[in-house]
Design a protein around this nucleic acid. Structure first.
Lengths: 196, 196
DNA sequence: GTCTATAATGGGATAGAC
DNA sequence: GTCTATCCCATTATAGAC
């Protein structure tokens, strides 16, 4: 049986999400219209509402998916049986590489928090806290093992995440440094920062 | 001679800028309307255009003033005759305190870059680069003096600034740590990070 | 599954009265 | 120096045809 003309439901949904992510990252959620997203996808604006209840849900779904995928990927990569120094090295590499591979999702997830409605904001913030907690527990293990020293575990967690995420603001593909070299340099700095 | 009723030109201009800064910080440039700014100030929307040519100039002026004031304040505070370690300590303190005192201007200046038109963007980016260069030259002096070691001066500059500016994302007035304690903790981390 | 058409609202910016 | 009134256009979201 021939497929009906215009029967693209399996592909239109993802294409809407991809277009929205890209436009939100470039111009910001508030500056992007549903018509703009529709044009990018190649459908009329009304059609978008078959795939999302409203613009807010589109933003929220993108951010929630980014955060849950990030958490899942780290939990897969983390070797909890290893020592804290080795786990921190793995975290440094994972965080930089994972974020460099998804600049748009990272950018939207950090910049558009204030455009979430209160309920959605709380859910995203909880996921972010969970990710921070993963790093903090590594730092605390290292302190118990006597291989790390730092002034305050929560504050050091936030300092390290800010430092590592900052790579996304300046890294340019094909620039002076390869991702591998960036990871090396940051690990050298992280290692000294937590040194006893 | 009695002042004319409604003659507030000396105060309305600054009040527009304060209201705009506050609203841009809370809701984002694109999400804030000129009518909203006018309501906050207590004038009609048309009146705003006696004080700014358009909405874009309002944003640009706020960002440019923040960056030039920041640069001027650091150049005032920097004791170039001192050693690099002492200057880096001063920079760490200056950056954290100065940024904590102006959360709205800092937030707007980091979040609304993409809402600047190309010419304005270039001017702000140049000011930002100048500020980064101030830190980088301290790091290079320290390396020449033999009191610092790091993998790459530009990369370390950006890592440190990201780390220090990150304080603004989590610090809450009246929270667990005083600004003074935050400065101490960050200096301890910065010092180790650049340790030979 | 997508389209056209439209409702209801609000946007930036300007003109001219007072 | 501020207000009122207005121009013109864009916005989100929905209804109903095909």
């Amino acid at each position: 049986m021939a497929r009906k003309t215009g029967s693209h439901s399996n592909i239109t949904g993802p294409r809407i999400r991809t277009a929205a992510l890209s436009l939100f990252a470039r111009y910001g959620y508030a500056a992007v219209s549903m018509r703009q997203i529709a044009r990018e996808v190649g459908v009329q604006a009304g059609t978008l509402y078959r795939y999302t209840p409203d613009k807010q849900s589109l933003l929220f779904d993108l951010m929630r998916d980014h955060m849950t995928t990030l958490l899942g990927a780290w939990d897969q990569a983390d070797c909890t049986s290893q020592g804290a120094r080795s786990r921190l090295s793995a975290f440094t590499r994972f965080h930089i590489i994972y974020h460099l591979e998804r600049p748009e999702a990272v950018f939207v997830s950090y910049m558009e928090l204030r455009n979430l409605n209160p309920g959605n904001f709380e859910i995203i913030e909880d996921l972010r806290r969970q990710y921070e907690d993963r790093l903090e527990s590594i730092l605390k293990s290292g302190r118990r093992e006597g291989v790390f020293h730092f002034p305050d575990s929560k504050l050091t967690t936030l300092a390290l995440i800010a430092m590592l995420t900052g790579v996304n603001t300046w890294y340019r593909h094909g620039g002076r440094l390869s991702p591998e070299r960036v990871v090396e340099a940051y690990w050298e700095m992280v290692e000294k920062l937590v040194h006893p």
